[in-house]
Design a protein around this nucleic acid. Structure first.
Lengths: 186, 186
DNA sequence: GTCTATAAATAGATAGAC
DNA sequence: GTCTATCTATTTATAGAC
Protein backbone atom coordinates (compact mmCIF):
# COMPACT_ATOMS: atom_id res chain seq x y z
CA UNK A 1 0.00 0.00 0.00
CA UNK A 2 1.18 3.49 0.95
CA UNK A 3 0.23 4.61 -2.53
CA UNK A 4 0.21 8.33 -3.17
CA UNK A 5 -3.33 9.65 -3.31
CA UNK A 6 -4.51 11.55 -6.38
CA UNK A 7 -4.90 14.78 -4.44
CA UNK A 8 -1.35 14.56 -3.13
CA UNK A 9 -0.03 13.80 -6.58
CA UNK A 10 -1.73 16.89 -7.97
CA UNK A 11 -0.19 19.00 -5.20
CA UNK A 12 3.25 17.53 -5.75
CA UNK A 13 3.17 17.96 -9.53
CA UNK A 14 1.68 21.47 -9.35
CA UNK A 15 4.15 22.60 -6.67
CA UNK A 16 7.02 21.43 -8.77
CA UNK A 17 5.77 23.10 -11.95
CA UNK A 18 4.82 26.36 -10.25
CA UNK A 19 8.29 26.48 -8.71
CA UNK A 20 10.30 25.49 -11.75
CA UNK A 21 8.52 27.42 -14.49
CA UNK A 22 6.35 29.91 -12.61
CA UNK A 23 2.69 30.01 -11.62
CA UNK A 24 1.43 31.98 -14.60
CA UNK A 25 3.52 29.99 -17.05
CA UNK A 26 2.02 26.73 -15.83
CA UNK A 27 -1.33 25.82 -17.34
CA UNK A 28 -3.99 23.54 -15.92
CA UNK A 29 -3.53 21.30 -18.95
CA UNK A 30 0.12 20.75 -18.18
CA UNK A 31 -0.64 19.91 -14.56
CA UNK A 32 -3.24 17.28 -15.45
CA UNK A 33 -0.99 15.84 -18.16
CA UNK A 34 1.97 15.40 -15.80
CA UNK A 35 -0.22 14.17 -12.97
CA UNK A 36 -1.87 11.83 -15.48
CA UNK A 37 -5.46 12.67 -14.55
CA UNK A 38 -8.46 14.22 -16.26
CA UNK A 39 -9.35 17.87 -15.83
CA UNK A 40 -12.60 16.94 -14.08
CA UNK A 41 -10.59 15.22 -11.37
CA UNK A 42 -8.50 18.26 -10.70
CA UNK A 43 -11.54 20.46 -10.26
CA UNK A 44 -13.11 17.81 -8.06
CA UNK A 45 -10.24 18.28 -5.59
CA UNK A 46 -9.57 22.01 -6.00
CA UNK A 47 -12.09 24.75 -6.81
CA UNK A 48 -9.57 26.85 -8.76
CA UNK A 49 -5.96 27.15 -9.80
CA UNK A 50 -5.49 29.84 -7.18
CA UNK A 51 -6.74 27.58 -4.37
CA UNK A 52 -4.38 24.89 -5.60
CA UNK A 53 -1.52 27.36 -5.37
CA UNK A 54 -2.32 28.15 -1.77
CA UNK A 55 -2.34 24.48 -0.83
CA UNK A 56 1.03 24.11 -2.55
CA UNK A 57 2.48 26.98 -0.53
CA UNK A 58 1.29 25.43 2.71
CA UNK A 59 2.97 22.16 1.75
CA UNK A 60 6.18 23.93 0.81
CA UNK A 61 6.30 25.76 4.12
CA UNK A 62 5.76 22.55 6.07
CA UNK A 63 8.56 20.85 4.15
CA UNK A 64 10.89 23.79 4.72
CA UNK A 65 10.55 23.73 8.49
CA UNK A 66 10.63 19.95 8.57
CA UNK A 67 13.89 20.02 6.60
CA UNK A 68 15.41 22.56 8.93
CA UNK A 69 14.33 20.55 11.97
CA UNK A 70 15.97 17.43 10.58
CA UNK A 71 19.21 19.30 9.99
CA UNK A 72 19.44 20.89 13.42
CA UNK A 73 17.58 18.66 15.91
CA UNK A 74 20.76 16.97 17.05
CA UNK A 75 22.73 20.15 17.49
CA UNK A 76 23.00 21.73 20.91
CA UNK A 77 25.01 24.92 20.52
CA UNK A 78 23.25 27.97 19.07
CA UNK A 79 26.35 28.76 17.02
CA UNK A 80 26.16 25.38 15.28
CA UNK A 81 22.47 25.89 14.66
CA UNK A 82 23.04 29.22 12.96
CA UNK A 83 25.83 27.92 10.77
CA UNK A 84 23.76 24.87 9.90
CA UNK A 85 20.89 27.12 8.90
CA UNK A 86 23.20 28.70 6.34
CA UNK A 87 24.29 25.25 5.15
CA UNK A 88 20.68 24.11 4.92
CA UNK A 89 19.64 26.99 2.72
CA UNK A 90 22.75 26.62 0.62
CA UNK A 91 22.03 22.92 0.17
CA UNK A 92 18.44 23.63 -0.84
CA UNK A 93 19.69 25.99 -3.51
CA UNK A 94 22.18 23.46 -4.77
CA UNK A 95 19.60 20.68 -4.94
CA UNK A 96 17.11 22.79 -6.91
CA UNK A 97 19.73 24.02 -9.37
CA UNK A 98 19.50 27.52 -7.86
CA UNK A 99 15.80 27.90 -8.48
CA UNK A 100 15.47 30.31 -5.55
CA UNK A 101 12.98 30.77 -2.74
CA UNK A 102 9.43 29.51 -3.40
CA UNK A 103 7.98 32.43 -1.50
CA UNK A 104 10.02 35.26 -3.00
CA UNK A 105 9.28 33.81 -6.44
CA UNK A 106 5.55 33.72 -6.02
CA UNK A 107 5.31 37.18 -4.50
CA UNK A 108 7.41 38.52 -7.38
CA UNK A 109 4.86 37.07 -9.74
CA UNK A 110 1.54 37.87 -8.10
CA UNK A 111 2.56 40.95 -6.11
CA UNK A 112 -0.24 42.41 -4.06
CA UNK A 113 -2.90 41.38 -6.55
CA UNK A 114 -3.37 38.18 -4.60
CA UNK A 115 -3.72 39.08 -0.94
CA UNK A 116 -4.06 35.51 0.32
CA UNK A 117 -0.68 34.73 -1.19
CA UNK A 118 1.14 37.91 -0.20
CA UNK A 119 -0.13 37.59 3.36
CA UNK A 120 1.02 34.01 3.48
CA UNK A 121 4.50 34.94 2.27
CA UNK A 122 4.78 37.81 4.77
CA UNK A 123 3.80 35.41 7.50
CA UNK A 124 6.22 32.77 6.31
CA UNK A 125 9.20 35.12 6.34
CA UNK A 126 8.19 36.26 9.80
CA UNK A 127 8.35 32.62 10.93
CA UNK A 128 11.81 32.25 9.46
CA UNK A 129 12.93 35.36 11.30
CA UNK A 130 11.39 34.08 14.55
CA UNK A 131 13.35 30.88 14.12
CA UNK A 132 16.58 32.88 13.81
CA UNK A 133 15.55 35.02 16.75
CA UNK A 134 15.05 32.00 19.00
CA UNK A 135 18.53 30.75 18.27
CA UNK A 136 20.02 34.20 18.84
CA UNK A 137 18.23 34.38 22.21
CA UNK A 138 19.90 31.11 23.20
CA UNK A 139 23.16 32.61 22.06
CA UNK A 140 22.65 35.71 24.17
CA UNK A 141 22.85 33.56 27.28
CA UNK A 142 26.44 32.73 26.36
CA UNK A 143 27.74 35.98 24.92
CA UNK A 144 26.77 39.60 25.22
CA UNK A 145 24.94 40.64 22.06
CA UNK A 146 22.09 42.83 20.94
CA UNK A 147 19.54 40.14 20.17
CA UNK A 148 17.34 42.11 17.80
CA UNK A 149 20.23 43.54 15.85
CA UNK A 150 22.01 40.25 15.39
CA UNK A 151 18.76 38.59 14.37
CA UNK A 152 18.04 41.23 11.76
CA UNK A 153 21.57 41.13 10.38
CA UNK A 154 21.54 37.37 9.94
CA UNK A 155 18.06 37.50 8.42
CA UNK A 156 19.04 40.16 5.88
CA UNK A 157 22.29 38.42 4.99
CA UNK A 158 20.50 35.13 4.36
CA UNK A 159 17.77 36.65 2.21
CA UNK A 160 20.43 38.55 0.28
CA UNK A 161 22.55 35.45 -0.16
CA UNK A 162 19.56 33.51 -1.46
CA UNK A 163 18.61 36.13 -4.03
CA UNK A 164 22.18 36.63 -5.20
CA UNK A 165 22.70 32.89 -5.35
CA UNK A 166 19.62 32.50 -7.53
CA UNK A 167 20.77 35.16 -9.96
CA UNK A 168 24.39 34.04 -10.15
CA UNK A 169 23.81 30.29 -9.96
CA UNK A 170 26.51 29.83 -7.38
CA UNK A 171 26.85 29.69 -3.59
CA UNK A 172 29.40 32.44 -3.05
CA UNK A 173 26.85 34.66 -1.30
CA UNK A 174 26.13 31.91 1.23
CA UNK A 175 29.83 31.32 1.82
CA UNK A 176 30.30 34.99 2.56
CA UNK A 177 27.22 35.19 4.78
CA UNK A 178 28.52 32.23 6.77
CA UNK A 179 31.86 33.94 7.23
CA UNK A 180 30.23 37.09 8.58
CA UNK A 181 28.00 35.12 10.92
CA UNK A 182 31.04 33.27 12.19
CA UNK A 183 32.63 36.58 13.05
CA UNK A 184 29.45 37.76 14.72
CA UNK A 185 29.12 34.65 16.83
CA UNK A 186 31.88 32.95 18.78
CA UNK B 1 7.53 70.08 -29.49
CA UNK B 2 9.41 67.50 -27.41
CA UNK B 3 6.46 65.14 -27.82
CA UNK B 4 6.97 61.59 -26.68
CA UNK B 5 7.39 59.25 -29.63
CA UNK B 6 5.06 56.28 -30.03
CA UNK B 7 7.90 53.81 -29.53
CA UNK B 8 8.93 55.50 -26.29
CA UNK B 9 5.35 55.56 -25.08
CA UNK B 10 5.01 51.84 -25.69
CA UNK B 11 8.22 51.20 -23.73
CA UNK B 12 7.10 53.42 -20.87
CA UNK B 13 3.63 51.88 -20.62
CA UNK B 14 4.91 48.30 -20.98
CA UNK B 15 7.69 48.84 -18.43
CA UNK B 16 5.22 50.13 -15.93
CA UNK B 17 2.72 47.30 -16.46
CA UNK B 18 5.35 44.55 -16.47
CA UNK B 19 6.71 45.96 -13.21
CA UNK B 20 3.44 46.58 -11.44
CA UNK B 21 1.48 43.47 -12.40
CA UNK B 22 4.10 41.11 -13.81
CA UNK B 23 5.24 40.19 -17.31
CA UNK B 24 3.02 37.16 -17.79
CA UNK B 25 0.01 38.87 -16.26
CA UNK B 26 0.27 41.74 -18.72
CA UNK B 27 -1.27 41.09 -22.12
CA UNK B 28 -0.47 42.78 -25.40
CA UNK B 29 -4.06 44.03 -25.48
CA UNK B 30 -3.64 45.88 -22.21
CA UNK B 31 -0.41 47.49 -23.38
CA UNK B 32 -1.93 48.81 -26.61
CA UNK B 33 -5.04 50.00 -24.77
CA UNK B 34 -3.06 52.00 -22.20
CA UNK B 35 -0.64 53.30 -24.83
CA UNK B 36 -3.66 54.17 -26.96
CA UNK B 37 -2.36 52.58 -30.14
CA UNK B 38 -3.41 49.73 -32.43
CA UNK B 39 -1.87 46.29 -32.19
CA UNK B 40 -0.36 46.66 -35.66
CA UNK B 41 1.64 49.64 -34.44
CA UNK B 42 3.10 47.72 -31.57
CA UNK B 43 4.29 44.92 -33.82
CA UNK B 44 5.65 47.49 -36.22
CA UNK B 45 8.03 48.67 -33.50
CA UNK B 46 8.73 45.39 -31.71
CA UNK B 47 8.87 41.90 -33.24
CA UNK B 48 7.55 40.19 -30.09
CA UNK B 49 6.49 40.72 -26.50
CA UNK B 50 9.78 39.21 -25.40
CA UNK B 51 11.84 41.69 -27.41
CA UNK B 52 9.78 44.49 -25.93
CA UNK B 53 10.59 43.19 -22.46
CA UNK B 54 14.31 43.30 -23.17
CA UNK B 55 14.11 46.90 -24.35
CA UNK B 56 12.21 47.74 -21.15
CA UNK B 57 14.91 46.18 -19.01
CA UNK B 58 17.61 48.20 -20.79
CA UNK B 59 15.65 51.38 -20.14
CA UNK B 60 15.12 50.48 -16.48
CA UNK B 61 18.82 49.83 -15.98
CA UNK B 62 19.75 53.15 -17.55
CA UNK B 63 17.28 54.96 -15.31
CA UNK B 64 18.58 53.17 -12.22
CA UNK B 65 22.18 54.26 -12.75
CA UNK B 66 21.11 57.73 -13.81
CA UNK B 67 19.10 58.07 -10.60
CA UNK B 68 22.02 56.92 -8.50
CA UNK B 69 24.37 59.32 -10.27
CA UNK B 70 22.02 62.22 -9.57
CA UNK B 71 21.87 61.35 -5.91
CA UNK B 72 25.60 60.98 -5.38
CA UNK B 73 27.37 63.19 -7.92
CA UNK B 74 27.80 66.04 -5.48
CA UNK B 75 29.08 63.89 -2.65
CA UNK B 76 32.78 63.57 -2.07
CA UNK B 77 33.27 61.17 0.81
CA UNK B 78 32.89 57.44 0.13
CA UNK B 79 31.03 57.05 3.41
CA UNK B 80 28.38 59.53 2.29
CA UNK B 81 28.11 57.77 -1.04
CA UNK B 82 27.46 54.42 0.59
CA UNK B 83 24.85 55.79 2.98
CA UNK B 84 23.22 57.66 0.12
CA UNK B 85 23.09 54.45 -1.89
CA UNK B 86 20.99 52.95 0.91
CA UNK B 87 18.79 56.04 0.98
CA UNK B 88 18.41 55.91 -2.80
CA UNK B 89 17.20 52.31 -2.83
CA UNK B 90 14.94 52.98 0.13
CA UNK B 91 13.46 55.97 -1.65
CA UNK B 92 12.88 53.94 -4.80
CA UNK B 93 10.98 51.38 -2.78
CA UNK B 94 8.91 54.03 -1.10
CA UNK B 95 8.04 55.75 -4.37
CA UNK B 96 6.92 52.49 -6.02
CA UNK B 97 4.81 51.42 -3.05
CA UNK B 98 7.31 48.65 -2.29
CA UNK B 99 7.01 47.00 -5.67
CA UNK B 100 10.53 45.58 -5.39
CA UNK B 101 13.46 45.26 -7.75
CA UNK B 102 12.63 45.14 -11.47
CA UNK B 103 15.37 42.63 -12.09
CA UNK B 104 14.69 40.23 -9.22
CA UNK B 105 11.02 40.30 -10.19
CA UNK B 106 11.56 39.38 -13.80
CA UNK B 107 14.05 36.63 -13.05
CA UNK B 108 11.60 35.18 -10.52
CA UNK B 109 9.03 35.03 -13.25
CA UNK B 110 10.98 33.77 -16.26
CA UNK B 111 13.75 31.88 -14.48
CA UNK B 112 16.28 30.35 -16.81
CA UNK B 113 13.72 29.73 -19.52
CA UNK B 114 14.65 33.08 -21.02
CA UNK B 115 18.42 33.24 -21.27
CA UNK B 116 18.57 36.74 -22.73
CA UNK B 117 16.74 38.03 -19.65
CA UNK B 118 18.56 36.00 -17.02
CA UNK B 119 21.92 36.96 -18.50
CA UNK B 120 20.91 40.58 -18.50
CA UNK B 121 19.88 40.43 -14.84
CA UNK B 122 23.10 38.66 -13.84
CA UNK B 123 25.01 41.35 -15.64
CA UNK B 124 22.99 44.13 -14.06
CA UNK B 125 23.60 42.91 -10.51
CA UNK B 126 27.28 42.60 -11.29
CA UNK B 127 27.26 46.27 -12.31
CA UNK B 128 25.58 47.23 -9.03
CA UNK B 129 28.21 45.31 -7.12
CA UNK B 130 30.98 46.98 -9.12
CA UNK B 131 29.51 50.34 -8.19
CA UNK B 132 29.68 49.41 -4.50
CA UNK B 133 33.16 48.04 -4.98
CA UNK B 134 34.43 51.29 -6.49
CA UNK B 135 33.20 53.26 -3.50
CA UNK B 136 34.71 50.76 -1.07
CA UNK B 137 38.05 51.06 -2.88
CA UNK B 138 37.92 54.84 -2.32
CA UNK B 139 37.15 54.12 1.30
CA UNK B 140 40.12 51.79 1.63
CA UNK B 141 42.41 54.73 1.02
CA UNK B 142 41.13 56.30 4.23
CA UNK B 143 40.67 53.33 6.54
CA UNK B 144 42.08 49.83 6.69
CA UNK B 145 39.47 47.39 5.41
CA UNK B 146 39.21 44.22 3.40
CA UNK B 147 37.77 45.66 0.19
CA UNK B 148 36.20 42.49 -1.20
CA UNK B 149 34.64 41.49 2.09
CA UNK B 150 33.13 44.87 2.82
CA UNK B 151 31.81 45.08 -0.74
CA UNK B 152 30.15 41.68 -0.51
CA UNK B 153 28.64 42.42 2.91
CA UNK B 154 27.10 45.68 1.75
CA UNK B 155 25.86 44.06 -1.45
CA UNK B 156 24.19 41.18 0.41
CA UNK B 157 22.66 43.46 3.03
CA UNK B 158 21.16 45.71 0.37
CA UNK B 159 19.71 42.86 -1.68
CA UNK B 160 18.31 41.36 1.51
CA UNK B 161 16.85 44.68 2.63
CA UNK B 162 15.19 45.14 -0.73
CA UNK B 163 13.56 41.72 -0.74
CA UNK B 164 12.43 41.99 2.87
CA UNK B 165 11.15 45.49 2.25
CA UNK B 166 9.10 44.27 -0.70
CA UNK B 167 7.53 41.47 1.31
CA UNK B 168 6.86 43.50 4.44
CA UNK B 169 5.96 46.77 2.75
CA UNK B 170 8.13 48.79 5.06
CA UNK B 171 11.67 50.16 5.17
CA UNK B 172 12.91 48.59 8.39
CA UNK B 173 15.34 46.35 6.54
CA UNK B 174 16.96 49.37 4.91
CA UNK B 175 17.16 51.20 8.22
CA UNK B 176 18.95 48.25 9.75
CA UNK B 177 21.27 47.80 6.77
CA UNK B 178 22.21 51.47 7.01
CA UNK B 179 23.00 51.09 10.69
CA UNK B 180 25.32 48.13 10.02
CA UNK B 181 27.05 49.93 7.19
CA UNK B 182 27.57 52.93 9.48
CA UNK B 183 29.31 50.67 11.96
CA UNK B 184 31.41 49.14 9.19
CA UNK B 185 32.48 52.50 7.82
CA UNK B 186 33.69 55.47 9.84
C1' DG C 1 3.51 53.82 -39.85
C1' DT C 2 -1.05 53.22 -38.17
C1' DC C 3 -5.16 50.96 -38.63
C1' DT C 4 -8.95 46.76 -38.53
C1' DA C 5 -9.90 42.11 -38.88
C1' DT C 6 -8.73 37.79 -37.84
C1' DA C 7 -6.08 33.67 -37.16
C1' DA C 8 -4.52 29.83 -34.28
C1' DA C 9 -3.60 28.32 -29.92
C1' DT C 10 -4.34 28.11 -25.19
C1' DA C 11 -6.26 29.74 -20.85
C1' DG C 12 -9.29 28.51 -16.72
C1' DA C 13 -13.45 26.42 -15.77
C1' DT C 14 -18.15 23.68 -16.16
C1' DA C 15 -21.66 19.96 -17.38
C1' DG C 16 -22.98 15.76 -17.25
C1' DA C 17 -22.17 10.63 -18.39
C1' DC C 18 -20.45 6.64 -16.09
C1' DG D 1 -14.51 10.44 -7.93
C1' DT D 2 -12.93 10.01 -12.59
C1' DC D 3 -13.88 10.65 -17.16
C1' DT D 4 -14.87 13.27 -22.02
C1' DA D 5 -16.70 17.00 -24.34
C1' DT D 6 -17.31 21.62 -24.48
C1' DC D 7 -17.70 26.72 -23.30
C1' DT D 8 -16.08 31.28 -23.24
C1' DA D 9 -12.53 34.36 -22.93
C1' DT D 10 -8.06 35.60 -23.84
C1' DT D 11 -3.44 34.86 -25.53
C1' DT D 12 0.39 36.30 -28.98
C1' DA D 13 0.86 37.28 -33.49
C1' DT D 14 -0.12 38.09 -38.74
C1' DA D 15 -2.31 39.98 -43.10
C1' DG D 16 -3.41 43.45 -45.65
C1' DA D 17 -6.11 48.02 -46.36
C1' DC D 18 -5.23 52.90 -46.03
Amino acid sequence: MNKEKVKDRIIRVASDLFYKQGFNSTGINQIIAEADIAIGSLYNHFPSKNELLQVCLIKEELEWFKGFEEHTSQLSSPKDKLLTLVDFRKKLQDSTNFAGCHFIKIISEVGESNLAVSDFVRNHKEKQKTLINEIVIELSEKQSINVNEVTETIFLLLEGALVVSTINKNTKGFDHAKKIIQELVF
